[in-house]
Design a binder for these strands. Structure first.
Length: 399
RNA sequence: GGUGAGAUAGUCAAGUGGCCAACGACGGCAGACUGUAAAUCUGCUCCCUAUGGGUUCAGAGGUUCGACUCCUCUUCUCACCA
């Protein structure tokens, strides 16, 4: 039991600091039913979560399964400083109202994964604000500038003469102080947070609250391209609020290699099962697509429902395997004869008539499942199913 | 503060008076092949009902029949010196 728990907890992790501590906490839980706390900090700036964010959430859920109380920390105070990401210069200041809105959308999404009854939502403004100037100075005195500059990001910026605001130095300190206040037993975060996470350990020692927290770091999830990290700005993400059809399709479009990564970091499938899936694919008894399909089903079910996931799968098969028309298509109307290129633009499946012409020339455009080649084609009155490529559809009614 | 280099399409990056809507690479889209996977091959990739027209090469002026290319100023970036 203990062994299995440890394996699940370490699963996919990039680095663990003080794993003995984790083992002790778990042992205490299994033997005496003692709970412990796991802290994770969240920035209230990004209300749209994608699967990259859920890696952490799922790790927290795993901890909950093994006796942890999760300290779901909202960095409402620290959000006003801005974590030194190097490009944070233009960070806008959030109003309390924005923050409140972001948080509620954040938590409803998060509780699709986390057990609400084992989660404490805490706001660091509650203790950082009363800390005051004295407290801040005391906190700042625990650390030297040299030590601060050890942080990779800082040293790089310092070396390249990129400005570093003194307030940015406070960020890791404050995040570390959160751990002091909360007396966290374990803190988890992404590998990019290493410095900040370690700061928690250091400060807990200085303030002599208790034993130092253990730290578990999760890798950054790759996006759909399999190379760069999943992020909204790179448009390689699967959002947790994506439509079931999109979500299913996106998961299915990841490469076989990346699929295993997703399995490790996102699936709740046990490690044994994943191993057997892997060997099944390796010796040819299992088709990789089947394996990917069940992953897509699992993920879609998690954020929507089983029913919707199954529907998305059926829809997917219909459109792609049997190349039929999807059940639901956007509908558009227009009057009089329409030039095909214009119609495609009006239906928002082409960005410009130039692009539409090119696609027609290349045979990417179909009307009612039939490829067309005449770029001068006029559509007279009637109903048409327009299609560009494999995935863009529209229904057009010409009056 | 001084000196020098630079700013080109989504990104990187050629182009140094007409052959430039601008080489190439990446990305993206489409086609073939497939498992809408990957890999590979091919085509396309500013806009406009188009063998043509329009608007582009940081911004504003100027020289010229003609400028992304030359000149002036402005803004911003980078390097070296102080």
């Amino acid at each position: 039991m203990l062994e299995e728990a440890l394996r699940e907890i370490n699963r996919g992790s990039a680095e663990v600091i003080d794993s003995e501590r984790i083992e002790k906490l778990l042992t205490a839980y299994f033997q005496e039913g003692k709970t412990y706390t796991v802290k994770a900090g969240f920035d209230p700036t990004a209300p749209d979560l994608h699967l990259g964010h859920t890696v952490l959430l799922q790790k927290l859920a795993t901890f909950q399964k093994y006796g942890a109380r999760v300290q779901f920390l909202i960095g409402d105070f620290t959000a006003t400083i801005g974590d030194p990401t190097g490009k944070s210069a233009t960070r806008k200041v959030l109003t309390p109202d924005d923050i409140k809105k972001n948080i509620s959308s954040y938590t409803t999404q998060a509780f699709k994964i986390l057990d609400e009854s084992k989660t404490d939502i805490v706001y660091n403004n509650d203790w950082l604000e009363p800390l005051g100037a004295n407290g801040m100075l005391e906190l700042a005195s625990t650390l030297t500038v040299a030590r601060m500059l050890e942080r990779d990001d800082f040293s790089k910026r310092y070396a390249s003469n990129t400005p570093i605001a003194v307030s940015e130095f406070m960020y890791p300190l404050l995040q570390g102080y959160d751990s002091v206040h909360l007396k966290s037993d374990i803190e988890i975060g992404g590998t990019d947070q290493k410095f900040n996470l370690l700061m928690g350990r250091q400060l807990q020692k200085v303030y002599e609250v208790q034993k130092q927290q253990a730290v578990l770091m999760m890798p950054i999830l790759e996006g759909l391209d399999g190379v760069q990290k999943m992020s909204k700005s790179l448009n390689n993400y699967i959002g947790v609020t994506d439509e079931p059809n999109d979500m299913f399709g996106k998961v299915l479009s990841v490469s076989d290699e990346l699929m295993w990564r997703f399995y490790e970091l996102l699936s709740t499938e046990s490690l044994e099962n994943i191993e057997s899936l892997k060997s099944g694919v390796a010796d040819g008894t299992l088709h990789p697509k089947k394996v990917k399909e069940s992953l897509a089903l699992e993920i879609t079910t998690r954020f929507h429902s089983e029913e919707k996931a199954n529907f998305a799968k059926a829809e997917f098969d219909k459109v792609h395997s049997k190349s039929q028309i999807p059940t639901e298509i956007e509908e558009y109307n227009c009057d009089g004869e329409v030039w095909i290129a214009k119609a495609l633009v009006d239906c928002k499946i082409e960005p410009s008539t130039s692009q539409a012409r090119r696609d027609i020339k290349q045979g990417a455009v179909k009307i009612d499942q039939v490829k067309i080649s005449d770029e001068q084609l006029q559509l007279s009155s009637g109903e048409y199913i327009l299609q560009v490529g494999k995935r863009k559809f529209a229904k057009l009614k010409v009056n």
